[in-house]
Design a protein around this nucleic acid. Structure first.
Lengths: 170, 170
DNA sequence: GAAAACTTACCTACCAGTAGGTAACTCATG
DNA sequence: CATGAGTTACCTACTGGTAGGTAAGTTTTC
């Protein structure tokens, strides 16, 4: 199954954003990455915000799908694995963690898409804490720890560090 | 005590970076903020990387000084307070957390300055864990949790959330 | 009066986004 | 089955605006 042009654009944009953030890439960069021209990219995504929001939505959807396919009790460990892969394989930041941190200066749809990553995943993590007093906060605590661990490991360029920082999540 | 022009530039740049990241502000923005011109800002900081690196160094120095003034056992709580203030008062991200997440696309001196935030603070947190097997990792774990909590609270625009996410640090 | 602190004026490079065209494909009609 | 209408997927060429940065002059301060 071949990737559509739109998907290749999305993939290129994800890589670009995950290395330097929303303002670090241009349509021309994406054009070079995909073999298109500036206008060719605009044909699929009229505005930069459209593209970035779509990238964040697709990224979130992948995580959501993986959690929905995992029994509640195993979801924390599953999410840790997903984040771990992200750091280890790509040596890159979490896309939505990066966008969230920049969200003060982002177009609204992009900031909202980044927010969606946390709210959507939190909902899927809550069933993992059936006995907790406040399972929502508990879920967000997991996400905060994972995001922080990715951030520190990424900054220090130490892929193994992520595992040590999140050892408490079994 | 009046602020020097250089310090006003640094303060303006810190605010700008903390809302949208390194690539979201320009010399012209800083000029407007300080009442100077584009070239006036360049007079103090020849290149953008110089300015951003200096902002990160000053930011780090403030945290370092506060921890050095605090007895080892109270440092984790102190750092939590500092981060909490950062979120509550300003409603902004941690400067070095943001820069660290963008560091894949940043000039080297800036990325290194952001890294310095973690390494410097980790060293000061280690004495808080005299019995730990690996006090360095323990210190980085604290930093990861704090950064993640700031990130999530910032993204969801919920200042109180930070307190709940970091309740385990007493 | 010399150094420090600026300003005006400018350059080159790049940005997101647009106007208008073209080649190829789909699909209904005769 | 052929034809023409409409659509998709691009491209070339360009716009107004902004980016970081600089050269040279003016003002302020000591």
């Amino acid at each position: 199954m071949k990737l559509t042009t739109a998907d290749r654009i999305i993939a290129a944009a994800e890589t670009r954003i995950r290395t330097g953030g929303y303002n670090s890439f241009s349509f021309r960069d994406i054009a070079k990455d995909t073999g298109l021209t500036n206008a060719g990219v605009h044909h699929y995504f009229p505005a930069k915000a459209d593209l970035a929001a779509r990238v964040a939505q697709d990224y979130t959807a992948r995580f959501v799908a993986a959690l929905d396919d995992t029994p509640p009790k195993a979801r924390v460990a599953k999410l840790r694995d997903l984040f771990s892969e992200s750091v280890r394989q790509d040596g890159r930041m979490c896309l939505c963690g990066l966008l969230a941190s920049e969200s003060g200066g982002l177009p609204d749809p992009v900031a909202e898409a980044a927010r969606g990553f946390f709210t959507e995943l939190a909902v899927r993590l809550e069933p993992a804490f059936p006995d907790a007093e406040d399972s929502h906060t508990e879920a967000l605590r997991i996400l905060a720890l994972l995001e922080g661990a990715v951030l520190v490991a990424f900054s220090l360029s130490d892929a193994q560090l992520f595992g040590r920082l999140t050892a408490s999540l079994t």
